[in-house]
């Protein structure tokens, strides 16, 4: 409950300065910027509606008007600048900054270090101590981001150009060329992904950075980026269920099953008996799964579907084949 009050207070005190300019601010763009819905914005305005200073006459209360889909706030000069950085905000910047330096995205003595010092200098001595103490006890590890394609990909994103990539697809087990509109670089569960609109699939896709074989800048400009920004899918990779997904049921020896569940966030699991676990998941294709589960050796059994059984049997035989002398 307490959390809610303070987050909301922080947001409202930040909204007012953005709305206090003589022309106010366009509602749609503001909602997007703050990541809130129109209803939430109106609720915040409703809270402000009867706030102000004594004597609380109409001339003392914060006023606002909505016109042509713009909101303007007035009689709130005391809130015309945002509240300075809070401890929590500074802490998140420090923790993230350190993680990005360790991952090789920024250099140790880059502009980031001096910028963070400037942010820190706005805190009081006590806050600085508390922030540092907290940030020092949190360590966020990002996988090293230094693939040979990172520069080309960033260039594509910065200049709004499409990319043509060679990608090793788990779904088909082969490399294929595709044109994509790059949106964002995403770190999830230990790997870097390039989030992009794939023209071949006609859908948003995550491409694992370490499975990209080559990258070229395309002649075509990205057209959808702004629109795609807002549809940020929260589940990464092959686990995302879709219309064509298969239902898979696997039986595991206890520890192996837990490992599978940890690595595959959408899997549902249940204890079967004291030593085995049943794992259920949905996946759009079985090929990646067939490559993935062979390593579990004799600690796994396949309940369904029969196609998966057939597929892994064949894969296993192919592997053994290349080791035959």
């Amino acid at each position: 409950m307490k959390e809610k009050v303070s987050k909301r207070l922080n947001r409202i005190l930040l909204l007012v300065p953005y709305l206090s300019s003589p022309d106010g601010a366009p509602t749609g763009a503001l909602c997007k910027k703050f990541g809130i819905t129109r209803e939430e914005l109106m609720e915040d305005m409703h809270i402000l509606f009867i706030c102000g200073v004594p004597e609380y006459t109409p001339y003392d209360l914060i006023g606002f008007d909505v016109e042509n889909d713009r909101i303007r706030v007035y009689q709130a000069d005391y809130f015309s600048r945002p509240l300075r950085m809070t401890r929590e905000e500074a802490m998140v910047l420090l923790v993230s900054g350190r993680a990005l330096i360790r991952a090789g995205i920024f250099e140790e003595n880059s502009s980031l270090a001096t910028a963070l010092d400037k942010v820190e200098s706005t805190l009081t001595a006590l806050e600085r101590k508390e922030t540092k103490d907290m940030a020092e006890r949190i360590q966020v590890e990002l996988e090293l981001y230094s693939g040979k394609w990172s520069k080309v990909i960033e260039k594509g994103i910065n200049n709004g150009r499409n990319l043509v990539i060679d990608y090793y697809s788990y779904s088909s087990g082969e490399m294929s060329e595709r044109e994509i509109e790059p949106v964002s670089l995403v770190f999830s569960r230990g790997h870097w992904y390039l989030l992009a609109w794939c023209h071949k699939a006609g859908d948003m896709r995550y491409f694992r950075m370490d499975r990209i074989g080559s990258v070229k800048i395309s002649r075509n400009r990205s057209t959808k980026r702004q629109e795609l920004e807002s549809q940020f899918p929260q589940t990464v990779g092959e686990y995302r269920a879709g219309r064509k997904s298969h239902r898979v049921k696997l039986i595991f020896e206890r520890n192996a099953g837990r490992r599978m569940v940890e690595e595959c966030p959408t899997a549902i699991w249940a204890e079967k008996d004291s030593s085995t676990i049943e794992v259920e998941l949905q996946t759009r294709n079985l090929f990646w799964l067939s490559n993935y589960i062979i390593k579990f050796g004799n600690e796994i059994g396949i309940e369904s579907p029969p196609e998966l059984k057939e597929l892994v049997r064949e894969r296993s035989k192919q592997i053994l084949e290349i080791y035959r002398v």
Binding site: L14, Y18, T86, E89, V92, V95, S96
Partner: peptide, 14 residues
């Protein structure tokens, strides 16, 4: 971390 990261961004951008 997501909310403080967002408000920090809005303050820096003001």
């Amino acid at each position: 971390f997501s909310v403080p990261a967002h408000t920090a961004l809005l303050k820096l951008g003001f």
